[in-house]
Design a protein around this nucleic acid. Structure first.
Length: 259
DNA sequence: ATGTCAGTAGTGTACTGA
């Protein structure tokens, strides 16, 4: 079972790149973030043509997430993160597929920090922690997947000292991520590559990709019931070098079959 | 401090968010 996550940064502008990568990578399940399209502008036909079914939650201009699956048997559990009924931003989508609870998320960026956007990020994080703790009580295998906008450690950023005040790397953000891991979640990519530099994002500025000035901010967190099924994973970094590409690269893991 | 994209309003190009 191959599961991927990809912040596309505009699904319609990125459609040729997305379709090309899907055809090549052939993931079974895909979490997408930053659709930047309203619900009715999701390119369902093009995605179905290459063999995927989709559930999505769009939003005009910003945010928006989707789960794609080769298997039609897919059920939406929720398209909002519990804890704030006034949160109108499309950042969370929970789908049941292949016996897995797939939680696709796009955590707020939070810059500039400090400020209201950073406060919103920390509040969103708190809601995620509460919901994640509840999910761990379930019998199902659960995966928290997506663009967390969190640089977990010095190893995950090309020049840590330059990012100390950034919302993606501030102590509050890293602590919130650690608190999540302390609940019992496993950071799949870091587990597969304990000491290696693995980036998933390269800024559009200053030839960041060419200089490999990247960040690791797209993550897979596995519940204890599923972590022993993790077999391989990686980043399709070359996709970041394509024409009209996103600033993120697709990231993927493979799970062995369940018992 | 800088820099580059995508989407929006709305037909020029400046804005916002990342």
């Amino acid at each position: 079972m191959k599961i991927a996550t990809y912040n596309v940064n505009g699904i319609n502008g990125r459609l040729p790149v997305l379709l090309r990568w899907l055809a090549m990578a052939q993931p079974d399940i895909v979490c997408l973030q930053e659709l930047k399209a309203p619900q009715e502008k999701f390119p369902l036909e093009a995605i179905e043509e290459v063999g995927y079914h989709a559930i999505w939650h769009g939003q005009k201009s910003w945010n928006g997430i989707a789960v794609l699956s080769k298997d039609q048997d897919m059920r939406q559990i929720s398209n909002v993160l519990a804890g704030d009924q006034d949160d109108g931003q499309s950042r969370y989508l929970e789908v049941l597929v292949h016996g897995l609870l797939i939680c696709c998320l796009y955590l707020p960026n939070g810059n500039p920090a400090p400020g209201p956007k950073f406060d919103y990020k920390l509040q969103w994080f708190k809601r995620l922690q509460q919901h994640a703790a509840m999910l761990l009580e379930k019998k199902l295998p659960v995966l928290l997947i997506g663009d967390f906008n969190v640089i977990p450690s010095d190893l995950d950023v090309y020049k840590p000292e330059r990012w100390l005040d950034d919302a993606l790397f501030r102590p509050e953000t890293r602590r919130a991520f650690e608190k999540l891991l302390d609940q019992g979640w496993t950071d799949a990519i870091r587990t597969l590559y304990p000491n290696e530099k693995i980036y998933t994002f390269w800024d559009y500025f200053r030839n960041a990709y060419g200089r490999d000035a990247g960040l690791r901010i797209d993550h897979f967190l596995l519940s204890p019931t599923i972590k022993d099924r993790l077999s391989t994973g990686g980043v399709d970094g070359h996709v970041r070098g394509w024409e009209k590409t996103s600033d993120h690269a697709p990231v993927w893991i493979e799970l062995n079959d369940g018992p």
